[in-house]
């Protein structure tokens, strides 16, 4: 065996592994015999040990006290943002893939804003009668966006790893339940503002999740951990 074939064991040896303290360490024992007669490997072990020792004593660098203040202020600022800014504030760089769907969402948001700014109906009119047509139009925009994104997501589904796919599927199920519950509440009480807002929030979140799904499947074929973690956020 030549020196290169022991590369991984040389590292383990520098980290403190010895055949005497590793069960089944036959290869390590072979390396130790090789090491006893190999000046090159002895030099590497000595130098790597010095480097490792020096690295473990490097000083910590303290973050400035203002850093926590900045983080706390940003969290507070995010908390105060209206829901539509939180939803549309951070459009990722891959957006062209879902540009058409995003446009539909913007139209939906505009319709929703216009709808909510309509003059208050006269007391004799029922709120449900005036709210329903606008609500249906907004929903239709969302449904169109969702349908388009779902098609994109399904066509790229195979490039996601099974764990991420399962989390995304679970999150979509959570959102679908929220959408169904909001719709059921609106069917009983069409003027229920809370149910209307919940429905639109759930639809909006579903669009964002599907956009994330398409992005994850489109980027590299491998899912960054932080993006997968972001997808899991909906489980709460």
């Amino acid at each position: 065996m030549n020196c290169e074939s022991y590369e991984d064991l040389l590292g383990d040896y520098v980290d403190g592994a010895r055949a005497s303290n590793r069960p089944g360490g036959e290869r390590l024992a072979a390396f130790e015999r090789h090491l006893a007669g190999c000046a090159r490997c002895q030099a590497l072990v000595a130098d790597f040990t010095s480097i490792r020792g020096a690295a473990s004593t490097l000083d910590e660098q303290l973050p400035p006290p203002r850093l926590w203040a900045r983080i706390a202020a940003s969290i507070e600022e995010q908390r105060r943002r209206p829901w539509w800014q939180r939803a549309f504030g951070a459009v990722p760089a891959w957006a062209p893939v879902a540009a058409a769907a995003s446009l539909a969402v913007l139209i939906a948001a505009a319709t929703w804003l216009a709808w909510t700014h309509e003059p208050t109906p006269a007391p004799q009119q029922t709120a449900g009668a005036s709210a329903e047509p606008g609500g249906v139009a907004v929903e239709q925009h969302y449904e169109a966006a969702i349908a388009g994104l779902q098609q994109l997501a399904e066509s790229r589904d195979a490039s996601l790893d099974p764990e991420t796919r399962a989390v995304l599927k679970e999150n979509l199920a959570v959102l679908d339940r929220a959408i169904s519950e909001s719709r059921a509440a609106l069917a009983d009480e069409p003027a229920n503002a809370l149910a209307q807002e919940s429905l639109l929030d759930a639809l909006d979140t579903k669009v964002a999740l599907l956009q994330d799904t398409v992005a994850l499947a489109t980027d590299t074929g491998t899912v960054p951990d932080d993006a997968a973690a972001a997808a899991k956020e909906l489980n709460q």
């Binding site: 660098q61 973050p63 983080i71 956020e233 909906l234 489980n235």
Partner: peptide
Amino acid sequence: TADAEDLVQEVFLQAHRTLAGF
């Protein structure tokens, strides 16, 4: 250190947003 401040801030904000996934 200036870039590190920005990046650590971004990491903790991301952590705050995604803690539900932990």
